[in-house]
Design a protein around this nucleic acid. Structure first.
Lengths: 263, 263
DNA sequence: ATGTCAACTTTGATTCGTCAAAATTTAATT
DNA sequence: AATTAAATTTTGACGAATCAAAGTTGACAT
């Protein structure tokens, strides 16, 4: 039906709208300007105009000239499906094939267009229906619903807070590799030792005692969830509490986002 | 580099040449006629002519007008790589994601163009470097070499022969589904009870005592390897003898072609 | 040797996704 | 209001892959 190109357009429109809505009160969807889209898609502005017209003709979006595009329900459904494939594939590559967070994006970018509904369902089952991908991004459900958590920037935490890394927001290669090296992957629990705003410095302590200080830029690239304060959490992961991973062959339990929502 | 379309052309050329060489003494490669190719590719004859010229221009094949095409080493390398991806993906789908032999072809047809070298290597490792896919077709090695076995049509076996199903040659959906229902998947060992040529009927006995009679057409759609005669083989599979599947999570041992070459 | 026919090639056209460069519109500034 | 700058659209073109239909060729059968 839809070409890989069209799938990428709707996906990118969805992501841009989400980004522009971040922190906004839910309301009428403001159109995504074509300039933004042309940058994201790495194509010239004229190309996007042409595509917008074609996709409007195909009922995937509404195009108001010089204002931008808004996905129709049909377009949104397609976009969510593509995003679901992308993120489930990322999860699969990390938990089953030993990839790490920083390597999976490019692979998933290709695979997301080559996965049938049937295969997707098998992967989803195999992984035990994860709700978040290896970066902590929400995986749209088969019904199109986005799982939701109350997240908080690491840079907005206060000294003494007990938190869990839940999402790496800043997803450029360099930062992802830093996060991996530093052990700040989603799923990791830690305590905020100090949050020195004037100094723009945030110190955290891992459960194994390791300490680390981040600047404000890095700290705002990482999102966290509040952890129920619970002293001396020694057992690394309550394996018995898993939802239903009939066959969870995940290499690292920390990278399975299923774990996160259990706390 | 090469488009999915071009990958499909070289793959199909390789398969057609292999098919036409079946049973022939290895010699100078005779060109694949474009008519055959146009049928395989499901495109009009003119399209194939155009593509042949372009691919010749790109050094993937030699095109002699009105004679046909022969892959260059470069084209052959590409074709083998695509075939390797296709067959490893099929193996993966069957042994890890619970697909069966009859479902994987279409999936692999898409995925083979969306798999990076790195991902391919991970899949190969994950599966323990299988040499044959779920239908028993040889998986080209990373070095481009084809694993080889001495196969024999089930229809050419004699009464009393102890054999193992090794390849399903006839791969249309209906036959594959029959083979699955009948339990004639590659990896299964059996004994030829009778081979009645005038009656065109072949009876086989499974180790569990089940009996089955096949007509000649079906019996020639199935290839076998001679089994070292060894009475009362009760232990289903000597798990310890596996080559090096660091992580062989295969659902069904019978479907992992690694097993076959061990006997 | 010649005519026939199947196989192949050519031709002209189409669709998709893209570009560069010129034209237009809108919004902001003066 | 007039000017300017930024964003967007239009235009004309192109490469890849395809088709249908018309034209060509060559091998075989007479």
């Amino acid at each position: 039906m839809a070409s890989a190109t069209v799938e990428n357009y709707v996906k990118q429109i969805l992501l841009l709208r989400e980004a522009s809505e971040a922190g906004t009160v839910a309301g009428k969807p403001s159109p995504v300007p074509l300039g933004k889209l042309s940058v994201r898609m790495n194509v010239s502005p004229g190309t996007v105009t042409t595509m917008a017209k074609n996709m409007a003709r195909d009922g995937l979006l509404h195009y108001r000239t010089r204002a931008g595009v808004v996905l129709t329900p049909k377009g949104e459904r397609l976009a969510l499906q593509v995003l679901r494939k992308h993120r489930l594939v990322e999860m699969f590559l990390v938990s089953t094939l030993q990839f790490d967070m920083s390597e999976v994006h490019a692979e998933a970018e290709l695979l997301e267009h080559a996965i049938s509904e049937k295969l997707l369902a098998r992967i989803d089952d195999f992984l035990g229906r994860p709700q978040f991908d290896p970066h902590g991004d929400a995986i749209p459900g088969a019904d199109g619903k986005m799982p939701h958590r109350k997240l908080c920037l690491l840079s907005e935490c206060a000294a003494g807070d007990r938190i869990r890394i839940s999402r790496i927001q800043q997803q450029d290669d360099a930062f992802l590799r830093y996060v991996l090296d530093a052990g700040l992957m989603p799923g990791v629990a830690l305590t905020i030792e100090s949050a020195d705003l004037p100094a723009d410095a945030f110190s955290v302590v891992f459960d194994d005692g390791r300490r680390l200080t981040l600047g404000g830029k890095a700290a705002s690239g990482i999102q966290t969830t509040a952890e129920v304060s619970r002293k001396n959490v020694e057992k690394p992961a309550p394996a018995s509490a898993k939802p239903s991973p009939d066959k969870n062959l995940s290499g690292s339990i920390l990278l399975n986002m299923n774990e996160i929502k259990l706390y």
